[in-house]
Design a protein around this nucleic acid. Sequence first.
RNA 1: GGAGAGGUAGCGAAGUCCGGUCGUAACGCGCCCGACUCGAAAUCGGGUUACGGACUAAUAAUCCGUACGUGGGUUCAAAUCCCACCCUCUCCGCCA
Length: 426
Amino acid sequence: MLDIRYIRSNTEDVRSALRKRHSSLNLDELLAIDQERRDILLEVEDLKAKRNQSSGEISRIKKSGGDPADLLADMSAMATRIKVLDDQLKRIDQQVEDWLLSIPNVPHESVPEGSTENENQEVRVWGSKPEMNFTPKEHWELGTALGGLDFETAAKITGSRFVVLKGWAARLERALASFMLDVQTQENGYAEVMPPVIVNRDSLLGTGQLPKFAEDLFHLENTAYYLIPTAEVPVTNLYRDMTLPETALPIAHCACTSCFRSEAGSYGKDTKGMIRQHQFDKVELVRFVHPDSSYAELELLLGHAESILQKLGLHYRVVTLCTGDLGFSSAKTYDIEVWLPGQGAYREISSCSNFEDFQARRAGIRFKPHDAKKSRLVHTLNGSGLAIGRTMVALLENYQEADGSVRIPEVLQPYMHGQQRIELCK
RNA sequence: GGAGAGGUAGCGAAGUCCGGUCGUAACGCGCCCGACUCGAAAUCGGGUUACGGACUAAUAAUCCGUACGUGGGUUCAAAUCCCACCCUCUCCGCCA
């Protein structure tokens, strides 16, 4: 959410940001209702000031045994008017709120302009494509043949876009989670949490999934609860409506949770395999930082996510999302795209974003500067470190051998009871 | 699921029965500044909510409004009375 005062005084900047995002929102309407709101506010607050004064007088008159009948008549008329104005105000407050909740974040100046992912900007490439003297297979083919991935059974017990992991695959899922969490907690300073994967509306409003993107979420029938699409939601909301001491910043948390996405509107995309599932596990990194350092913090966060791929020896590239591809709440996002030899494509495995104060304003996350009276909004950042299912996909495709087996990278072997190779699962 | 108790500043807590300068919110603790001290403790003095609006270059000062879990209602006036909901705690039931 943007600050209405910022929109008022920097209207052209916001308009230009909306244009870059190809948004058709018309700010004039918002500015008009904002003006109307303040006009009403002015009148009703003036009346309330008078009411407060008279109320005190009535009290005094009554205490000294007098009769405040004249004042009471005045007050009655005033009360009626105040009620009318308060009702108007409530309606218009809601309108302003709805408006503000629907305006996307302003992209950072370093974000390239563009309309589709084709205009994302490559930042760097790490490693190189593995050399294979055979035609690499896709992960679902390998994983199914090796007995670890079972899409058919998942379809029976639940439906499409689910998978049953068996044997080595189930263990590899756990191994990856442990490995990633160990790196982030032991080397990169994140404090691990395990939050609920079911959250309420306020939490989803706080991070920006609601009200605009309800169709992407699983809503639990007859409740006010939703399944989380990412641990970003519960972890960011750990500090909702709190003012933190400045010395506490930066705060860094990591969490491994299941994530649930309805994938409405992605029919036909990635229908085979584990790339796009309704349920998947992900290690998420979340940082709460001082506004002055949030872009340095974004580079740091990106590095933490990259370190996992480097340790796993997986070739990847980093891209900056262009304005047209940028998420609603984000001011700047780097995607890490891992190379998948079977697909012959780079695919997103992590997304690292700086939300600046966009989420903090919605969620009421502030800090108290040591040298100032007023609290300020923190900046929030998050990134995947990493999506576990997609990491398994990358491992299968990158470490496959001509005979259909798959090598396990050394750093993971301790987590796999020393297993060095995935062969047919009995 | 049943019964009971509770939700007021950073924390504890008074006020609620019987509505009226009680929200810059008693009192205690904590925290900040000062005095005393070589320094500290103790003691003494002072200060210490957030948000919105007006005025502003200002996220400074000042003025006004709002907020006693949340949302409604009654009233000239609600922390206080009425209704609904949420959360916490205790006991019982059920249960991984």
